[in-house]
């Protein structure tokens, strides 16, 4: 099976985020990491290849720093990588990002495309589904298990409130992967060495520009959310805080 994994670099979970001067975006002088569900998507692709053979290709879009995500994926075992490189990719909406990916892979023939179920930055939860629509492929979202079947694949979809559902699908297909579908591996030293010699293709913004349209949604303003609740902040040494909390639990909330 030939599998493409769409990955994204996002701000590190505990990175202190600050607004830029215009209040349109965050200041970019922070640490980044791979979007967590995408790491699970990569892991699942590697496992499928180990079972059924084939190739795992990783793709991302973003400025030069985003190459780190691809390097790590190659070190973990991906065969090759595609980097849509440029600052222009950062502000694309989900529709345009999907269009850029579709344009970059138009000469390839994958059996499966995996994405994480959503990103930790924009949180659209849309790019994968739109990419499937652009390619004319069937898709399924929030996937927790993938098996090969006679006619294609059988996947386990997570539904809400603890429910699941099996779905039979033909190939090629696109799946958005849920965190926790598997256990992530670490890159080995040998893997890191080998990654240096693996192919990494760069695609510039100009090369896919013709496939893109105007962004159909625009962030007018980014800001720190207004509080809807009055929050009481407790301070002091731990022992004192514990006393204050217990007083609250007993006399205000009356739960103990």
């Amino acid at each position: 099976m030939k599998i493409l994994v769409c990955m994204k670099q996002v701000p590190q979970k505990d990175a202190p985020l600050k607004l830029n001067e215009g209040g349109t975006w965050i200041r970019e002088d922070i640490s980044y990491e791979v979007n967590e569900p995408d790491a699970y998507a990569l892991e699942e692709a590697l496992r499928q290849r180990e079972k059924h053979g084939g190739e795992v290709v990783v793709i991302t879009s973003g400025p030069p720093r985003a190459q780190q995500v691809l390097r790590e994926a190659l070190a973990k075992g991906a065969d090759r990588a595609i980097h849509l490189e440029g600052d222009g990719f950062v502000t694309l909406d989900a529709f345009n990002t999907a269009k850029a990916f579709a344009a970059a892979i138009k000469d390839e023939s994958f059996d499966l495309i995996f994405t994480g179920l959503q990103s930790d930055d924009y949180g659209f939860a849309q790019t994968g589904v739109i990419l499937a629509e652009l390619l004319g492929w069937p898709h399924a979202t929030i996937i927790m298990q993938i098996e090969k079947s006679d006619s294609g694949i059988r996947v386990k979809r997570e539904l809400e409130a603890g429910f699941f559902q099996f779905v039979d699908m033909p190939l090629p297909a696109l799946l958005t992967i849920q965190s926790g579908i598997n256990k992530l591996r670490y890159a080995t030293l040998i893997g890191i060495k080998q990654a240096k010699n693996k192919p990494l293709k760069k695609v510039s913004f100009d090369e896919v520009k013709l496939a893109l349209g105007e962004n159909l949604q625009r962030i007018e303003k980014l800001y720190i959310p207004q509080k809807t609740k009055k929050t009481e902040v407790l301070q002091g040494p731990p022992g004192e805080i514990a006393k204050k909390l217990v007083d609250k639990l007993r006399n205000e909330l009356r739960v103990i």
Partner: peptide, 26 residues
């Protein structure tokens, strides 16, 4: 903290042990 009624900015490993003791006492 945006949705919290009571916010304790601190290390949970410092706060929770004395909290357990205080609850027990009370």
């Amino acid at each position: 903290f945006e949705i919290a009624d009571v916010a304790v900015v601190g290390n949970l490993f410092d706060i929770v042990p004395p909290l357990i003791e205080e609850v027990k006492k009370t």
